[in-house]
Amino acid sequence: MREIRFSGYGGQGVIRCGLITGKALSLFDDKFATMNQSIGPEARGSACSSQVVVSEDRVLYPYITRPEILVAMSQDAYEKYEPELREDGILIIDTDLVRMRPARGKIKVFGIPSTRFAEEMGNRIFANLVMLGFFTAVTKVVTPEAMKKALPGLVPSRFLDLNIRAFEKGYTYGLEQLSQTNIGVAEEKSKTPATKPTPAKARKGKK
């Protein structure tokens, strides 16, 4: 069983990320996947998230207990959800939007300027698809074919091609990063701590 959390601020399409991933896994990758989202006032504009639980059998407990994969597309989301990530988990960030502390334990870190890439494509609205492509490449939780098949119905049909292009942009960037050594990436990230609070302190205040 694998537990994934997509997080960011309301409007970035992080719920859509969960929907696309869950649909891809359930309908096209022959897995069982549930998707739950944070709803309510806290999800409007501030840290918001969707959670996907993936399993070979029926999911019995549809919520995340200790996420293995965290995708953080905003500083708030990173601060709020990073402390619950497993020590051997995977952290994926938008490098322009998240300034991270040194990674804990054996956490593997992958970063992509997804919003900037989307803006270069013409609209930052595609940032979540760039991120999904990247996520698909570096985690291999889901196949890229399934993800692309899942898009119709979940993105406006007239923008389907652009969404696929955004996905592929992120996917290719992900494969390039993988071809370098993962540990190298994580270490490089951890050399540039930007925020003041120590991990322990930040962990205490949140959640």
Partner: peptide, 9 residues
């Protein structure tokens, strides 16, 4: 609410 908001196949 849990089932109502849970996405699944």
């Amino acid at each position: 609410e849990c089932v109502g908001h849970m996405h699944e196949k």
